[in-house]
Design a binder for these strands. Structure first.
Length: 258
DNA sequence: ATGGCTGAGCTACTCAGA
């Protein structure tokens, strides 16, 4: 089974790219972020036509997450944390896998820039709440997969020039510590688990030729709870969609679980 | 390089992204 995570930067602007990606790379479940639309304007029909049903937690203009899947997803929830600003950033659902019940937690963490603004405080509050919700969830279910756009550069090697991000909301130590705290609850950053020193990115800015120069960063992640590690076959960052015409600034990461 | 480029909402321009 192939589960992918992708910040699509508007599902409506990206629909053709997404359909093309599905046709080519055949994911079973898509965890998408930044859909930038309300539920009623989500392109349900386009996905239905190719056999995918959608569970959507939308928002006008900004944010928004969805689970688009060929497989039946049970127990969809949109209240994983209490968001002070009522932004749509987490959608969860359950799948049956062997004898395990896996909970998929699809997330779009706040960006947090600039760091001297209330946006940064919102990110910190948000992360704190998220970590504490995961801690509780893990007691009830040891089979968790957290995937999405974390807006966190885990380590210095995860960005083309760390110096430029050490005082940024994506790279500040206190934010990276929060990421480690999450891992320490009992997760592996599965890309890093499978690739010890390799440098690959999941995001490249639109401007200044960042893609062409490979000025990128790794901020989209799959965190897999300890109990599921042995079931993970592979993790892959698929750069193809970022090279297309009218791309998202993020590219998909693909998890295979068998 | 606190910019430049893209998308939404709207229809000129701001907000947000990372």
């Amino acid at each position: 089974m192939k589960i992918i995570s992708w910040n699509v930067n508007s599902v409506r602007a990206r629909i053709n790219n997404i359909l093309e990606y599905i046709k080519q790379d055949k994911p079973d479940i898509l965890l998408i972020q930044e859909i930038k639309t309300q539920d009623e304007n989500f392109p349900y029909a386009e996905f239905e036509k190719i056999g995918f049903s959608s569970n959507v937690f939308g928002q006008k203009s900004y944010n928004g997450v969805a689970i688009v899947s060929k497989i039946d997803i049970k127990n969809i929830k949109k209240d994983f944390i209490k968001d002070n600003l009522k932004q749509s950033r987490v959608i969860t659902g359950e799948i049956k896998f062997k004898e395990k019940k896996i909970e998929l937690i699809n997330i779009y963490f706040p960006n947090g820039n600039p760091i001297d603004s209330d946006k940064y405080q919102y990110k910190k509050d948000w992360l704190k709440k998220f970590v504490s919700s995961i801690k509780k969830k893990l007691i009830k279910n040891p089979n968790l997969i957290i995937a999405g756009d974390f807006n966190i550069i885990p380590e210095e090697n995860d960005v083309y020039d760390f110096k430029r991000y050490e005082n940024d909301a994506l790279g500040k130590l206190e934010i990276r510590k929060k990421f480690r705290e999450l891992l320490n609850l009992g997760f592996e950053d599965i890309y890093r688990f499978k690739n010890k020193d390799k440098q690959e990115f999941t995001f490249w800015d639109y401007f200044a030729g960042s893609w062409q120069k490979n000025y990128g960063m790794r901020i989209d992640h799959f965190l897999v709870s300890t109990n599921l590690i042995e079931d993970i076959t592979s993790i892959n960052i698929n750069k193809k969609p970022r090279s297309k015409v009218k791309p998202s600034d993020h590219t998909p990461i693909e998890l295979i679980i068998n």
